[in-house]
Structures are given as C-alpha cells and as structure tokens.
C-alpha cells in the first residue's frame, strides 16, 4: 500500500515561506510527477514527504497513519537521489543490502532479495564492484536497486536522470516506467523537465513558488491548462501566448495557441507574417514567424517544409484548440 496524503502542509525556512499551504492526495500505485521551474519547492516537498525536513505546519498521512513526526526510516519510503548517493566504500551488493542490514533482516533473505534486484536491473555482473567503477547509468540502477529491495510503500525520485547524458536519459526513463508497471508501487518523481513529466506520469503536479498550479493527467494538462503558468510550462515548444487587441477578438485577455495547432499557408489566413529563423529537425520544422502587433510566433510545419528567411506566410489558429485566459491568468 502506498497512499500518501498531504493536509495543509506548510514549510518555512526562518522567515522565508517556501511552501505556503498545500493539500495533495496521492493514490496507491500512482506514478506522480512534481514538475516546476527550479526553486519552485518541488524538491522540498519531496523531502518533507521523505521526512528529511520537518513540516512547519500541517500533516502528512501515509496509508492513513499520521507520519508527520516519524523519522525517515520509519515511514517505509525509499528514495533515489539526484547524485545517486551510493556508499562509495561498499560494493554494489553491500549498497543494495544496506537498508536490509539496517532492518536486521536475516542474511539468507538479504541475499535472496539482493540477487533478485540485481537480476531485474541487469546488475548481476557488476555486483562485486564499487560505485566508482560503474558508469552513470549503472550507478543509477544500483540506487534504484537499493530502493527496490526494501519493498517500500512508495518510491521517491529526486531528479534522478539529470546527471545522465541525453541518450541514456531516454533509456532510463523507459526503464523506470517499466519498473513502475511491473511493481505497481506508488512513485513520486521530481523533475524540472516537462518531457519527463509528460512521458512518465499518471498524474502531474505542476508547482510554482510552492503552490500547486494544477494537478491532472498529462493529457488533461496539455488540453486544458488551468492557467497561463501551466499553459506556458507544459508542451514543447512552448505555447504561443498573445495579449492585446488580437486576444480581445477572441474574448480573452490572453489567448494561447500551441505551435502544432496553427495552420500555415502561402495564400491566405488570419494573420500575415514574415518567416524569421526556421529550425529543421527532420521530422518537424519549427518556424519563428514575425506578425505585426504580436510576439514572435512559433509554428510547427511538416518535416520537409521548404521555406526561407523573409518569406511571407499566412497563419490560422485552429478554432477548437485556442486557449483563452482571463485578466487573472486563469483559463476561461
């Protein structure tokens, strides 16, 4: 079981309020991603759940039990740190066995569980090496192994992929997702990378300045961002946000339209503009188009769309994909 509930949780460091007051329900077996820009309080929130920091006010319930005052070890959670935090003086085997040894488990059971974890994570051939002799991806897997063997109520991941190179990151992303599918254990995952959030999460929690901006499935957030912040944060490239008279025509203070939801034409359309930079990615082409009275718009075109700097094009936003925001920044 791994149901985690935060009730009115607050965190202050001295005078500085990092998390004003926050409620959140995490269901058993869910993969929840906390995402937000750096300094938004997502890591602090994770550390509060882990018990590595005290909450200033409010309650944390794990499976209905009040865990607010419990030390980290008693909460039954496992954590994978950004730096992996492996014990450099212990072999892979001893690293993975450490939490079991601390729990004073029988040696035969420790061995069984360690072997098992090593097999799942493809670590068997490295099991007697030390962390210093492993690659980044292998270290990452050891850190995950150390978490798995405890059979925790929930896994906590603190930006676990940020120290890996791009190719490896994609791999580990898949591995962690697969792990979640086979274990069906609650996972809470902190990242600043919205691609990780979109691809891995059952539920995304978008945080900004210690406040929850929106909670929902990746597609909910993509389709119906609750406010300007979420609209700008989720999706790549970013949603085009347009203010002023043009937005007023659509009955909004700010209107938003994603690059992939703008039709492009050489003959006719709603807005006429001039192509600036065009980025050819192969599968897609992203055009940066200057339209009078608007910020530069990003538009997705087909992969081999032939266009040159200075070309005149017409743009039309797809009517059903326009997001409208009121003066307070909330979606209308």
């Amino acid at each position: 079981m791994g149901k985690i509930t935060l009730r009115n949780v607050q965190k202050r460091f001295g005078e500085a309020v990092v998390i004003p007051s926050l409620d959140l329900d995490i269901e058993d077996g869910e993969f929840v991603v906390f995402v937000g820009p750096s300094g938004c309080g997502k890591s602090t929130l994770l550390r509060l759940i882990a018990g590595l920091e005290d909450v200033s006010d409010g309650q944390i319930l794990i499976d209905g039990r009040n865990a607010t005052e419990m030390p980290p070890a008693k909460r039954g959670l496992a954590m994978v740190f950004q730096s992996y935090a492996l014990y450099p003086h212990m072999t892979v085997r001893k690293n993975i066995a450490f939490p079991l040894k601390m729990a004073k488990m029988e040696q035969s059971e420790i061995d069984r569980r360690v072997e098992n974890a090593a097999r799942i994570l493809n670590l068997t051939s490295y099991i007697d090496r030390r962390p210093g002799q492993l690659s980044g991806g292998q270290r990452q897997r050891v850190a995950i192994g150390r978490a798995i063997v405890r059979e925790p109520a929930a896994f906590l991941f603190d930006e676990p992929l940020s120290n890996l190179d791009a190719a490896l990151r994609v791999n580990m992303r898949l591995e962690i997702t697969e792990l979640h599918q086979s274990l069906q254990t609650t996972m809470i995952y902190v990242t600043h990378d919205q691609v990780e959030a979109m691809t891995m999460a059952d539920k995304i929690v978008v945080l900004n300045a210690g406040r929850i901006e929106q909670v929902g499935s990746p597609l909910t957030l993509y389709r119906n961002p609750a406010n300007l912040f979420v609209a700008g944060f989720i999706g790549s490239p970013k949603m085009n946000l347009i203010e002023g008279p043009e937005a007023a025509k659509f009955g909004a203070t700010t209107m938003g339209v994603r690059p992939e939801h703008i039709d492009i034409s050489r003959e006719s359309g709603l807005w006429q503009g001039e192509v600036g930079v065009s980025e050819h990615l192969g599968s897609d082409t992203f055009l940066h188009v200057h339209v009078a009275g608007m910020p530069t718009l990003t538009v997705r075109a087909g992969g081999e769309y032939g266009v040159h700097h200075g070309d005149k094009v017409w743009l039309t936003p797809q009517a059903d994909k326009i997001h409208r925001f009121g003066p307070d920044g909330r979606a209308l």
């Binding site: 590595l52 920091e53 005290d54 030390p71």
Partner: peptide, 8 residues
C-alpha cells in the same frame, strides 16, 4: 536544512 530530530 534538517529536521528537529537531527538538530537535537
């Protein structure tokens, strides 16, 4: 950056 417990 720590808990009351570790501070004590």
């Amino acid at each position: 950056m720590a808990t009351q417990h570790s501070k004590t």
